[in-house]
Design a protein around this nucleic acid. Structure first.
Lengths: 380, 380
DNA sequence: GTTAGCACTCATTATCTCCGAGTGCTAACG
DNA sequence: CGTTAGCACTCGGAGATAATGAGTGCTAAC
């Protein structure tokens, strides 16, 4: 009955057939199906014996006596770790993605949101994007824009290029010229320094230099800090909720609702992701019961972290039923990781698709986009 | 048999009872229920006679012989137009909403998105927010922020205070000082003018003045126009998709999916909204078959347009089953309209919000807020 | 080791029956 | 005349029961 835990070639093949079929059909797979559809050159009876072994070893199980077999968590795990071979993305598609991504490529937050959207479309599952707030809260640029005689827009650009704005309304009127002058002064004092190093002293100086009272300055400073704080916040984007309804596991409304409510809990997702094992390519996969949460035992999470200059700027996770198209999900996420990290390497420029790993590199077609911003529309 | 089409007092009362009950229970309402639960001082037999009349007149219908009655489109219409009395919002709730809204109140797009979110939560239906792009494409302010030696962030503020940014990457290096100088020059030439009045001539002048080649200037100008265009685009926010699953009409997945797919078609929604009749308070209601679309015959749309200074800045629509809690939906939307328009009247009026961490500007706290909102509505 | 054959299991589906909510109608009542 | 009680009738929905068939495990033969 198969020694200990190793699967021989044939058992692996059968396990793969079962999982492939189950992923496709979402129905328990019988021995006959495996024998016929996957053309193993064996009779169903033989398959049956092997399947009995696989069940005994815990790779598959049967929901009830007269149903076929269903992969277990262990089965999926083996499938993901040992059986799955990488699928490469269609280059044409890749090109599409790149143009889409390029449009959004001004700060990491937007980029990650766009990634999540794309991944969700690519995989038909829910994708959760998390963009980590920058830890560096230095101000790169800052501007006060007069709106009307007693209000102004405060715009702050932080070290990671994210732009935040806030409207400030004052009790008293303030002349546009004063605002513009203030803009310059504040800029000078805030520029490049971590925001928390700005002292009361500094504020006094600014006020003095701008020739306004400190109480008039405060609203602006508050707004600036609000903007900075906002940059420091993690942001969570959940994309493709409607995709859910495409999958047969959500045949009842309750299940769908429970699931949606569950994944609202961003913290849980984060915990699961951080505790699940790395696949070696920067992706982590948590399958079914592995995640340890009761309600999540029928779901899997595949997640990828994006790293730029050695720091993690965020992640995108796909959450779906354990019966998930791992090949597609994994390759999609891998692909997005390459895209995004490559992009940011170029400082937002574009040098087209997939780097190494050999395949689908054929530079030709769109590969020459390196001139400025996307679509090469040369005219104004 | 009730003359022609007018409903007497009693019939109205019965119709109201039927609709109220149906909204609550989603099940056909029988004569007994009306007689007992709504305490009319009449026997079920009498009610039965009246209901037969109502059916004959087209206000209600019965799904089959031995079921109760269900309101028809005409019935709902009468309910909305003649029976419904305004419900006022809980002041405490109102306060919550105001603070929520205040945080997002920097440009109309964000505000409308926030409104849609709130309305969706308030009503448990899907809310679709549309923020109309500004027709005035003048630039209010503009800044180039150096990112690294060959790229920069272009930030544009348009007339309606929306802030857009775009990353520009150049083929050649450019010194930060040059950028900052350019920033000033471009600002000067673009400021206050409609973007489409900027001529080639102007570009030449800018290039000359900044001392750079026109081809180096172009990417920036492109980016600026991109930003402006983005401001001009309508944006659509669909909030609360998950709410859908709370309602018994979506008992089957297919229905839910069909519905979601249907409302993705923003154009249809817009058409329906624009062709449906105004309720007199700035709200439009389209009930069931009224909208004229086949697949939408079981749904209603309640919509409100937000107007500031006489121009429409956007709208929020609630889309749900005909059996919708009109009272709640209508009052919620009315309320949001008042809130939003009042806010923008005050110039976006955050009166130093957020952190109550000490610097509490007098006007601030919640004290003043309650009377600004609906219910007591003495003003505005 | 592989395969054919067979008895057995059990979820799913179809068919039937029964129940009761709700109706419309009629006749009696104030 | 409007209102009410009573009653026969209808028809959807819930449950019970039976038929179906996919899939299994086991045994014996190749």
């Amino acid at each position: 009955m198969a020694k200990n835990d190793e699967l021989d070639e044939r058992k692996l093949l059968i396990l793969k057939a079962i999982i492939d079929d189950y992923i496709e059909s979402s129905e328990p797979v019988g021995s006959r199906t495996v024998a016929k559809k996957y053309d193993m050159g064996l009779s169903s009876a033989t398959i049956r014996n092997e399947m009995a072994d696989l069940e005994e070893m815990g790779y598959i199980s049967s929901p009830h006596t007269s149903a076929g077999r269903v992969p277990s968590t262990k089965g999926y795990r083996t499938y993901v770790d040992k059986i799955l071979e990488p699928v490469s993305k269609d280059p044409a598609l890749a090109n599409d993605i790149i143009t889409k991504l390029e449009e959004k490529m001004s700060d990491y937050g937007k980029a990650i949101k766009a990634c999540a959207e794309i991944v969700s479309q690519l995989t038909n599952y829910i994708a959760i994007g998390v963009s980590h707030g920058s830890t560096d809260n230095s101000v790169k640029a800052l501007q006060l824009v007069p709106v009307d005689e007693s209000s102004a827009l405060v715009i702050v650009v932080t070290e990671d290029n994210s732009v935040k704005s806030k409207l400030v309304t004052l009790d008293e009127k303030i002349a546009p010229e004063v605002l513009i002058e203030m803009s310059g002064i504040i800029n000078r004092y805030f520029y490049g320094k971590p925001a928390n190093t700005v002292t009361l002293m500094t504020l006094n100086r600014i006020a003095e230099e701008a020739g306004i009272s400190r109480s008039a300055l405060l609203p602006f400073v508050d707004a600036i800090f609000d903007c900075i704080n906002e940059c420091g916040k993690d942001e969570i984007y959940t994309e493709g909720t409607a995709q859910l309804l495409r999958h047969p596991e959500f045949d009842s409304i309750e299940k769908a609702r429970d699931f949606i409510e569950m994944i609202q809990d961003g913290e849980m997702i984060e915990k699961i992701v951080s505790s699940s094992e790395d696949l070696g390519n920067g992706l982590t996969v948590s399958i079914g019961t592995e995640n340890g949460y009761d309600g999540m035992s029928d779901f899997s999470i595949v997640s990828v972290k994006f790293e730029v200059d050695g720091t993690c700027i965020g992640s995108v996770s796909v959450v779906g039923p354990t019966r998930m198209d791992y090949a597609n999900v994994i390759s999609s996420l891998e692909f997005m990781k390459r895209m995004l990290e490559k992009k940011s390497l170029e400082g937002g420029g574009s040098r087209l698709i997939g780097d190494g790993s050999g395949k689908d590199e054929k530079g030709g077609s769109g590969a020459e986009v390196p001139d400025t911003n996307g679509d090469g529309d040369g005219n104004a």
